[in-house]
Design a protein around this nucleic acid. Structure first.
Lengths: 230, 230
DNA sequence: GAGTTCACTCGCACACTGTACGAGAATCCT
DNA sequence: AGGATTCTCGTACAGTGTGCGAGTGAACTC
């Protein structure tokens, strides 16, 4: 009756000498940041730590388990403020931006959102904080969960394709004009899409995305607020 | 100056005899539905088609390219109605539900959202239709794109973790009570999360999720509508 | 001090992956 | 008939996660 997540299993009895689990996870995150999800192999990670590949299996039952740990470490970088001070909208907004930034900083984590459950302590801490924010806002019962899920969905849903686009198109930098021409060809049969391509949205992707994110976030918050007043 | 997406490359000169590309992609989707993303290997797919593994490389440059094609075929199952008849809110809402259902039907596609750009003709068609809906609603210029991105983000962001949870927890069915107990332990230090676990949200996950999705969708639409009136 | 136990390391092996290569077969064009 | 083009596929290579079991060292017990 063993579950597939690390977090639902009894942790390994402690013991401090030799390598530690944190050290391994830290090195894994570093490697993931540098070389991406495909760049992480047990052999490479072992080499980086001056250890044999299979030594790591003492600390970690499986590679997926290691990824779960690394994934939760990413959640640990997200910062949540107290909603009592700044009001729930600002608190939620700041948390949303923090989540986005963290994922952009660790692009590989975007892939894991769809693959691993977020049950680690850091994920718990963030979700807990967000729930508190929505309670302060006035949500009660199940709607607290719904609001939390909704906002998390928005942030991840917006950020994941952002990362996807960067990693696919950014691997080898292309001439922007050439890229735009290629996309134009793909969109040729779809008038709406074509119009979208022709707009200036391609000029400075960075700020356009930021604007887009804020637009959606604002909408989201407005929509949630409306649930409270009626 | 080659791009990494199939859609940005010149298609292979036609020629119909022997196997066809559609046949291969169809078989791939079938295999993916049955065995998941890890269940698809070129050798298995070749065997399924009565062909050698490497024969497929005539029709497809790489496995990722095959996945791009399969991914777009999934987009092809999403249905969009004309917003002029039913009004933009109903049209968008129906499309959102369709998108969710399609992904739930092809869980492996959830993984690909974060890995491949959606540049295929079917993805184009869906995005095009959604843009038209928001134009009917009254959006103009860049905000059409923003609204489209926002709604797509919500739908994917909500559905991806749904799939993730199912695949991790559903592989081996567990006693729900036991699972709840395990989760309770993980949430022990986080009062908000604990409260969430203790609620009845675990009784019938299916309908709860549906409710949650509709809650968020409603919020999203309200929030977007608000952008129009002010 | 001797012996035993336990925490840890790691080389080897296995089954499996994507795909480059190049030789062969089949088909079509002239 | 001959040549070109389209298509098939066996072999091979480098790489993957990880099970196994033998080995090492330190700590604890008698």
């Amino acid at each position: 009756m063993q579950f597939t997540s690390v977090w639902l299993r009894e942790p390994r009895r402690s013991g401090s000498p030799g390598r530690s689990r944190d050290e391994i996870v830290g090195a894994a995150v570093e490697l993931l940041d540098r070389e991406g999800l495909d760049g992480l192999s047990m052999r490479k990670l072992g080499a980086k730590l001056g250890a044999g590949a299979t030594s790591l299996y003492w600390y970690v039952a499986t590679k997926d388990e290691l990824l779960e740990l690394a994934y939760d470490q990413v959640w640990g970088e997200m910062t949540a403020h107290d909603p009592d001070g700044v009001g729930w909208r600002d608190a939620v907004s700041a948390l949303a931006h923090s989540m986005r930034q963290v994922i952009l900083r660790h692009p590989w984590s975007a892939d894991l959102i769809g693959r691993l459950p977020a049950l680690g302590p850091n994920a718990m801490r963030v979700s807990d904080a967000m729930r508190r924010m929505f309670k302060v806002a006035g949500f009660t019962g199940t709607t607290v969960d719904f609001a939390t899920a909704t906002l998390t969905a928005y942030v991840f849903g917006m950020t994941i394709p952002e990362v996807a686009w960067d990693t696919t198109m950014g691997e080898a930098q292309h001439d922007p004009d050439e890229l735009r021409a290629a996309v134009r060809k793909v969109a040729a049969d779809y008038p709406e899409m074509l119009e979208s391509v022709e707009m200036d949205a391609y000029e400075d992707p960075r700020t356009v995305r930021e604007l887009c994110f804020d637009f959606g976030l604002l909408s989201m918050l407005d929509g949630l607020e409306r649930r409270l007043t009626t």
